[in-house]
Amino acid sequence: MSDHIQQAAETIKKKFKAEVSMFRDQVTLQFDKVHILEVCQILRDDFSFGVLTDETVVDYWQRKEPRFQIVYQLHSREHDARIFLRTPVAEDDSSTLSVVPLYPNANWYEREIWDLFGIRFEGHPDLRRLLLPKGYEGHPLRKDVPIKVEETRFSFNYDDIDLGKPRAEE
């Protein structure tokens, strides 16, 4: 761990009771979701983590409570350093604060997360679906959504499935 990251991790740990973990020189800070804007503000302005490389979410369905964890990857170009932030989000209140005011490129990341996982971002300027078509129901990358949409067709059940399918007209 470089001095720069260590200093940043110490500051966040002290101020927001963050858990610091390290895996192969990757530092991850885990803390409550209400602090995300303050943490990003400090990391961006005081520790020069100016780039939000990625923002995504992990669904720990049936394994963990709370169910989701939002993952932020920050990069400092001045120090060539990376830091990872994780904020747990519960299933029954699946919303968190948007970081668009600090990192404008989070706009589309958060729209994608809303689209595929159904996590609302409070304070997002334009929370619409990004990838799926208009009028799509549900959030298909949640782990409790069934993978298959149609029974696999084999020779013995081909007719059953084929008869039920919609067919296009001329």
Binding site: I147, V149, E150, T152, K165, R167, A168, E169
Partner: peptide, 20 residues
Amino acid sequence: SNGGVFNNYAIIQGVDEVLP
């Protein structure tokens, strides 16, 4: 023809649902 390996939410299971 029938969705192939992509039996999921994004892919139409055979274009004959849309076109003859």
